[in-house]
Amino acid sequence: KLCLVCSDEASGCHYGVLTCGSCKVFFKRAVEGQHNYLCAGRNDCIIDKIRRKNCPACRYRKCLQAGMNLEARKTK
């Protein structure tokens, strides 16, 4: 099974979405830290295992598009 954000090996369902541990922690920190990420490109950066750290804005956008939600952990 692959992470729906970066296509690395998924470690489980986190915040409602099948993700790897790295994307799970990234999403939690992004939401709780209330980061205002900005993409230096055109908001279409490739997010994969190798390049997932290059653009936090696009990675966060991809987390949201996949359906990640901090509240999902509280309902399970």
Rank of each mutant, 00 (worst) to 15 (best):
Asn36Ile: 09
Ile47Arg: 03
Leu64Gly: 04
Lys1Tyr: 06
Gly12Trp: 05
Leu4Gly: 10
Met68Thr: 02
Lys74Leu: 15
Val5His: 01
Tyr37Met: 13
Tyr15Pro: 05
Val25Ile: 14
Ser7Lys: 14
Thr75Ser: 13
Asn54Trp: 08
Cys3Ala: 00
Asn36Ala: 11
Tyr37Ser: 05
Arg51Met: 14
Glu71Leu: 06
Lys76Trp: 05
Cys45Glu: 01
Cys13Ala: 11
Glu9Arg: 14
Gly21Tyr: 10
Asn36Pro: 09
Thr75Asp: 14
Arg42His: 11
Asn43His: 07
Val5Gln: 00
Ile47Cys: 03
Asn69Thr: 13
Lys1Phe: 14
Gln65Arg: 09
Glu71Gln: 09
Leu2Glu: 15
Phe26Gly: 00
Thr19Arg: 00
Lys28Arg: 10
Leu70Glu: 11
Tyr37Val: 06
Ile46Gly: 06
Cys6Ala: 00
Ala57His: 04
Leu2Gly: 11
Leu70Asp: 10
His35Met: 13
Leu18Thr: 10
Arg51Gln: 12
Ala40His: 04
Arg59Leu: 11
Lys53Trp: 07
Gly33Tyr: 14
His14Cys: 06
Lys74Pro: 09
Ser7Gln: 14
Asn36Asp: 08
Glu32Asp: 11
Asp44Tyr: 03
Asn54Ala: 15
Ala72Cys: 15
Val25Gly: 13
Val5Ile: 12
Gly12Thr: 08
Cys55Ser: 02
Pro56Glu: 13
Cys20Lys: 00
Cys39Thr: 02
Phe27Thr: 03
Pro56Ala: 12
Ala40Leu: 08
Val25Asn: 07
Ala40Val: 13
Gly33Val: 09
Val5Ser: 00
Gln34Cys: 10
Asn69Ser: 14
Cys63His: 01
Val5Glu: 00
Lys53Arg: 11
Ile50Val: 13
Lys62Gly: 06
Arg51Glu: 14
Lys1Asn: 06
Cys58Tyr: 03
Cys6Tyr: 02
Leu4Phe: 11
Phe27Met: 05
Val17Asn: 05
Lys53Asp: 15
Glu71Pro: 09
Gly41Asp: 09
His14Phe: 07
Cys3Ser: 01
Ile50Arg: 13
Leu2Cys: 08
Ala72Ile: 12
Lys49Trp: 06
Ser7Pro: 01
Gly12Pro: 03
Thr19Phe: 03
Gly16Phe: 01
Cys39Gln: 02
Lys49Tyr: 07
Met68Asp: 01
Leu70Lys: 10
Ala30Pro: 00
Glu32Asn: 08
Glu9His: 09
Arg42Met: 10
His35Ser: 06
Lys1Glu: 09
Lys28Ile: 08
Tyr37Gln: 05
Leu4Cys: 13
Ser7Met: 08
Arg29Val: 14
Thr75Ala: 14
Ala40Thr: 08
Asp48Cys: 03
Val5Cys: 01
Cys45Gln: 02
Gln34Ile: 05
Gly33Asn: 15
Val25Lys: 15
Ile50Glu: 10
Lys28Thr: 12
Asn36Tyr: 04
Tyr60Gln: 08
Ala57Asn: 04
Gly16Met: 03
Lys28Phe: 07
Ile50Phe: 04
Asp44Trp: 03
Asp44Leu: 04
Arg61His: 07
Lys53Val: 10
Ser7Tyr: 06
Phe26Gln: 01
Gln34Arg: 12
Met68Ile: 03
